[in-house]
Each structure stands twice: as C-alpha cells, then as structure tokens.
C-alpha cells in the first residue's frame, strides 16, 4: 500500500525548535488529524508537508519516493488551504475560483461549477470578493479543493468560521474525497467528524523545548 510518510522531522522556526523527531504515515484514503495547543507546530507541519518549507532534518516520501526527488509531482497532488483565503476583492467569486483551478491545468467550467456547488456558493458566484463575509470567504477558499481535484488535501483549521450546514458540506466533501482514494491531513482544535481518522498529537512547548535544549547542549559544546 502506498503511503505518504514523514520520519524524524525537525522543524526550526527562527531560533527555536518547533518540533523534533516527528513521524507520520497516511495510507490511500486515509485521514490524519493534527491536534495540540497553539504554537506546537501544526501549521508548520502542514506547510512542511506541502513543500512550502524544508525540514531542518528528516524527510517526507510518497509511495517510497522522497518528495525532494520530484517536487513537481508533489505540487501537482497537493491542495493546501491555509489561514489566508487568497481572495481578490475586485474579482467575482467565480473569477477567483476559476483562476485557482486554472493553475492546475486548463480550468473546465464544469469543475468550477462543481466547486461552487460543493460549498453552496452558486448564488454568490457573480458577487465581487470584497462583499463576502468571513464564513463565505472561508467557503470560497475550501471550494478550491473541489474545483481542482488533487490527491492530498492539507487543511489548516478548516472549520473556523463555518456554520453547521457548511461544516456538514466540508465533512461530506472530505468523505467523498477519501472514497475516491484521496488523503486528508487537517489541523484542528474542534473535533472533526472523520471516519477512522488517525490522530497525531503534537507535543506542547515544554517537551519539544527540552529535547531542543539537549540538542543545543550537544552542539554547542566547545
């Protein structure tokens, strides 16, 4: 079975260790939920998985092949929804979405429509981005997932600002994605209703810090 794996990951932001010695494995159709207190590195781990930042040590691999060997293939399968919603105020909802879908190959009108439908944005389709509410903006960001299919979804706090109906749509979209063999990694504080998802609890500060102190002590012995 092909796995999306990470092993012995160390992440350093600024001068401090965010986490060290971290590993995970997500199988086809699998889901991984990252939990932990603020600042424990959930977002950093997601960015690391996406390939936006490089780990200070350790490696990521997809079906046994290191990500670094074929970054373009990895970029083609990653769909990342972070804290920022990437919405241009002067473009309409549809224009925003079809631009993002188009980055991953020529955008088929059908796919954009599917994205709008998946998060109930059809009625807003011709509204400019600036009039959207926070929840609507977040739905539009999530709609990118449905508008351009990709194998690996990386979601940072996907439920923030969503009403119950939208949360239901998100869970349904994730379920359908996994049904089709896709994988999901989500960082969240609120419990996500995902069937047999693995949970990765990131160590709170003190623990990571203690291991970091040990490392620094060893490295700075002069």
């Amino acid at each position: 079975m092909s796995l999306f794996e990470g092993h012995d990951l160390i992440c350093i932001r600024g001068e401090r260790h965010v986490f060290a010695g971290l590993g995970f494995a997500v199988p086809t159709g699998g889901a991984l939920v990252l939990v932990g207190p603020n600042g424990c590195g959930k977002s950093s781990l997601l960015r690391l998985m996406a390939g936006l930042i490089r780990p200070a040590s350790g490696g990521l691999s997809w079906a046994g092949t290191p990500i670094g060997d074929d970054p373009e293939a990895h970029r083609a399968r990653v769909r990342y929804v972070g804290h920022l919603d990437c919405i241009k105020a002067v473009l309409s909802v549809r224009e925003n979405l079809s631009f993002w879908a188009g980055l991953h190959g020529p955008a088929a009108a059908g796919e954009v429509r599917r994205g709008l439908e998946a998060f109930a944005l059809e009625k807003l389709a011709d509204m400019p981005g600036r009039v959207l509410s926070a929840g609507q903006r977040h739905r539009l960001a999530l709609a990118r997932l449905a508008a351009s299919p990709g194998e690996l979804w990386l979601l940072d706090e996907p439920t923030v600002g969503l009403d119950t109906a939208a949360q239901g749509r998100l869970t349904a979209a994730i379920a359908a994605h996994r049904e089709a063999g896709g994988r999901v990694v989500a960082a969240t504080h609120t419990p996500l209703d995902l069937e047999d998802a693995q949970t990765l609890a990131l160590a709170p500060f003190a623990q990571a810090a203690r291991s970091a102190e040990a490392d620094l002590g060893a490295e700075f012995a002069w």
Partner: peptide, 15 residues
C-alpha cells in the same frame, strides 16, 4: 503575499 495567493502559486505545478 499578504492574501496567501503567493503560497498557492509556489505550490502550483508551473515552474
């Protein structure tokens, strides 16, 4: 950069 679009461009398959 500020609205996050740049992250998605970096993640896009295009060089």
């Amino acid at each position: 950069y500020e609205d996050g679009s740049l992250e998605l461009m970096v993640l896009a398959p295009q060089p």
